[in-house]
Amino acid sequence: MTTEQKNDRGKLVVNDSECKGCGLCVEACPVKCIGISDQLNHFGYKTAQYEGARCTGCGICFMVCPEPGALTVWRLVTHHEVVVA
């Protein structure tokens, strides 16, 4: 664990049973941190997937997404200083 690593300001969680893989979020994301999965979900859609880094938590993907709960955008709030012996 490095102390120097900068945490992303946001992160995206995709609910792959709700996502229909339309790709609007992929197009909309300003930092291009969303891709489309190679795997089919239970309903036969290739869903969106977070690339794992660079999310700024802007929420544009959420507003563009037609499904109510397919995307959840989290934002960084605080850092906890933990003392490790």
Binding site: M1, T3, N7, D8, G10, K11, G57, G59, F62, M63, P68, G69, L71, T72, V73, W74, R75, L76, V77, T78, H79, H80, E81, V82, V83, V84, A85
Partner: peptide, 15 residues
């Protein structure tokens, strides 16, 4: 002794 920061996130946009 060193200090490590853990990120804490909260939902900004959800259903």
């Amino acid at each position: 002794m060193s200090s490590v920061s853990f990120p804490e996130y909260e939902v900004a946009f959800g259903r």
